[in-house]
């Protein structure tokens, strides 16, 4: 049985499934209980599972994450919601110094299998600090898994996997895609890998890597390239940002010889640089053109009236694709 769900509904469904089947799972955060989350990702869950399992916490991100670490240490599977990704800043010490290192510094004796869910990204006319893309901070920190689904099916399956894996997971939810469309989502439990990219279109001429809210942008640009130049781009939704699915990335570029990486995070020291370095390290002899990054500019995400110009657009991605396919 499947149902048509949007991403918020799929995320809620994943939480519902795991709350029902695993009594170690707890959901906690700001406004996740009575209010059902500011995006309604936890809608109705407190009514269903009670305030001991779906918990409105005081307004304190370090408190939410730090106490989730303690809950995880002592046998629970907390899923902490950070209301918007940039609100995590007060909790970063807990993420970097503790969640990421618990297994390592106790030589495997203790672990911190918690999930930190957070809406992220621009394009929703949000106020200041509601639109950041910080995935590279987390991918840079050993011990954390980082994933960013781009559709309802992956969101549910990956969130279930995240609640089951024995590592801390940063689960990034592209706010712009929360209600962007529905997809058939199976009822009950199913899993999507936390380590595999997904090839969305098969292409011969260039590999186009994207994740989160940039996936639909990449798909549109690929379509446009096909229309305008008759060239085909292989669009790959990375989904898992740490670890990266090296095999899929390399095998695609070995075929196409060209690569464009799209991300809405700032360009400098973003994950695009890591992917480009991977290609330089392991696929340089296959490359027929320089690697191109199309990314957010190296400025703070600006106020919403101009945020669209900050983000990679279909046009910018298409221009990047053309630059790469025309180089020889």
């Amino acid at each position: 049985m499947t149902r048509m769900l949007n991403m918020v509904q799929a995320i809620r469904d994943a939480l519902d499934v795991k709350l029902a089947e695993d009594n170690r799972v707890l959901v906690l955060g700001e406004d996740v209980g009575v209010n059902g989350g500011v995006f309604r990702a936890t809608d109705g869950l407190q009514d269903k599972y009670g305030p001991e399992r779906v918990i409105d916490t005081p307004l304190a991100e370090s408190g939410i994450i730090g106490s989730s670490i303690g809950l995880a240490l002592n046998g629970f599977r907390p899923v902490a919601e950070i209301q918007f990704l940039a609100f995590i800043f007060p909790g970063l010490e807990q993420v970097f110094a503790h969640a990421a290192r618990m297994r390592y510094r106790t030589r495997g004796r203790f672990t911190a299998p918690l999930v930190i869910r957070a809406p992220y990204g621009a394009g929703i006319r949000g106020p200041e600090l509601h639109s950041e893309s910080l995935e590279s901070l987390f991918a840079h920190t050993p011990g954390l898994r980082v994933v960013a689904p781009s559709n309802p099916y992956d969101a549910k399956g990956m969130l279930i996997s995240a609640m089951e894996v024995d590592d801390p997971v940063i689960f990034l939810e592209p706010t712009r895609l929360y209600r962007a469309g529905t997809r058939d989502v199976p009822e009950g439990s199913y899993r999507v890998s936390l380590e595999k990219a997904e090839r969305l279109t098969e292409g011969r001429d260039v590999s186009l890597f994207a994740w989160g809210a940039m996936v639909p942008v990449a798909l549109r640009a690929a379509e446009q390239l096909e229309k305008e130049q008759g060239l085909s781009a292989e669009v790959i939704d990375l989904r898992s940002l740490m670890p990266l699915d090296k095999e899929t990335i390399l095998s695609s570029v070995e075929k196409t010889g060209r690569a464009v990486i799209v991300h809405e995070a700032h360009q400098t020291a973003g994950l695009g640089a890591e992917i480009a370095a991977l290609l330089a390290d392991e696929a340089v002899w296959c490359l027929r053109a320089p690697i191109k990054r199309v990314a957010g500019f190296d400025v703070p995400v600006p106020p919403f009236s101009v945020e669209d110009a900050y983000l990679p657009t279909t046009e910018r991605v298409l221009a990047g694709l053309k630059e790469v396919v025309m180089a020889e």
Partner: peptide, 16 residues
Amino acid sequence: AHLEEQKKLLAGGGLA
């Protein structure tokens, strides 16, 4: 310098 470059990029329509 890198921001100057990005600024020029955007001024030119954001295209490479």
